[in-house]
Write a protein that binds this DNA or RNA. Structure first.
Lengths: 261, 261
DNA sequence: CTGGATTGACTAACAGTGTTAGATAAAACT
DNA sequence: AGTTTTATCTAACACTGTTAGTCAATCCAG
């Protein structure tokens, strides 16, 4: 909600039209939705700022109301953070899914490269939001067990499964050999794969998790400053190198079921 | 500093003898060192507790003194955290280095497996400390630029370089081909490798970072609960599988300079 | 169009946080 | 033995998240 009216248009109307277009509902509902959006936006801005500290009073100050009024939109600070986490998770899933869609005419190997690059790019471009998802939980905040983020996580996993194994034959995916067999691991993967990519062999799903872990680790190390020698350009080049090597390994596994020999 | 004396031995002596043995210095210095150790221990305990919240007042309460007295040992909360981070980083480097030493008679491929397993095991066993090092920086805390942690980071890097390339010939390390050449990346790696493993080719160092990223990503995903389907046993088995596949890939690269074809 | 219910924003207050200032006792050193 | 240094204390400040209670604006049913 902006602090001042524009062009004499009453404040509430301008907000409603510009920020929540085409959404039906009473004026109050639209105003409320707009206010919620602005609160989240301001809170995110504070998390993304240098200090990285988000404080209810600071948000209220920036939005232009008292702290206590915030409680009419979010029951507590944790609920506000939960909303930000859910939004971030969905935005990341959107970005990765979009990359998967944009590359759907390419070969599977190249699709994986594109999606992996999109994953890092989003993390670099939205560091604070990426850390909301994958960083240390903010102190005193505990994520809801089965919340809004699970669907985003599933979309992410499904996109990865799709771009990695999309054009593999059933024989190829079934031929993937796991270096270390383990009954409990197979069981866990079998139940999990049904939620993400039904029909995919558990070993393939396990390989997908492995690839996710590879790219995730480098992204985390980079955005948290543990690769201080690498500037942004070098880190990006290093990442690309890793992705390309992984894509090559994937091709090898596709043909031989394993990378050894 | 314990709350009560034991066996009639005066409190300060017992603490000094049991916690800071063999350290010369005045009684006051030894008491001070012991108090610092206990403060750090209590603070770490609070970070490792369910809530994960460390508060100066809580630490003081548990140690048995007032908040303000803590300021005679640490100038600020951030300095206490800095000490914890430095200790954690060194402890991790110790554990990894010890695994490297313990496996020094094995072949390089197997050494990498052992060290990688030790990396995860330490992270799982000391979740809070691992996150102090590699998690999101605690809000309002900014790590010192070139502090006590750089030496630990170097030791970690050196250990990884050693166990990965320790028994490779110069021809083999020089033959590593990078999928994506980039001038700035090579330059960055060239300067960085001198601090960690002087003499190692930059491309080999880059491969080492890639392997670190692989294992780091899976560990982070696991301890932050992003692989909820995998219980501890399955996560460990999955990790072992990844390590073994990577070791196989390393052997392939050693022989052919690349993993493609 | 009017009256009752709902909603949004407010003031005031509480318990908790990190931090600083100043006083007082004990230990260490000369 | 007297002086300095150190450790601990009490008191206070500004800040945090949160709750209670008040009042005007908005919505909705008669």
């Amino acid at each position: 909600m902006a602090a001042h009216d524009i062009d004499g248009i009453p404040h509430e109307r301008w907000v409603a039209v510009s920020e929540v277009p085409l959404r039906q509902g009473s004026l109050r509902e639209r105003k409320r939705a707009a206010t919620i959006d602005e609160i989240k936006s301001v809170a995110l801005g504070q998390l993304a700022a240098d200090s990285g500290q988000m404080t209810l009073r600071g948000v209220a100050r920036e939005v232009g109301m008292t702290v206590q009024s915030l409680y009419h939109y979010f029951p507590s600070r944790d609920d506000l953070i939960t909303a930000l986490v859910a939004d971030a998770h969905n935005a990341l899933a959107d970005a990765v899914q979009a990359a998967g869609q944009a590359s759907r005419t390419l070969a599977a190997g190249e699709r994986f490269v594109q999606v992996a690059l999109a994953y890092r790019q989003w993390a670099v471009d939205h560091r604070a939001r990426f850390l909301l998802i994958y960083g240390t939980p903010v102190p005193g905040y505990e994520a809801p067990r089965e919340g809004l983020t699970t669907s985003a996580a599933r979309r992410l996993g499904a996109t990865f499964s799709d771009v990695i194994f999309g054009d593999w034959t059933a024989t190829e995916t079934a031929g993937i050999r796991t270096p270390h067999e383990h009954a409990r691991l197979t069981a866990a993967l079998t139940t999990a794969v049904e939620l993400v990519s039904p029909g995919l062999p558990p070993t393939a799903f396990g390989l997908g998790i492995e690839l996710w872990g590879r790219i995730h680790g480098l992204v985390m190390l980079e955005i948290l400053g543990h690769l201080p020698w690498l500037g942004p350009a070098a880190a990006g080049a290093n990442y690309r190198s890793v992705i390309l090597r992984t894509a090559a390994e994937l091709e090898h596994i596709r043909r031989h079921g394993t990378n050894s020999g």
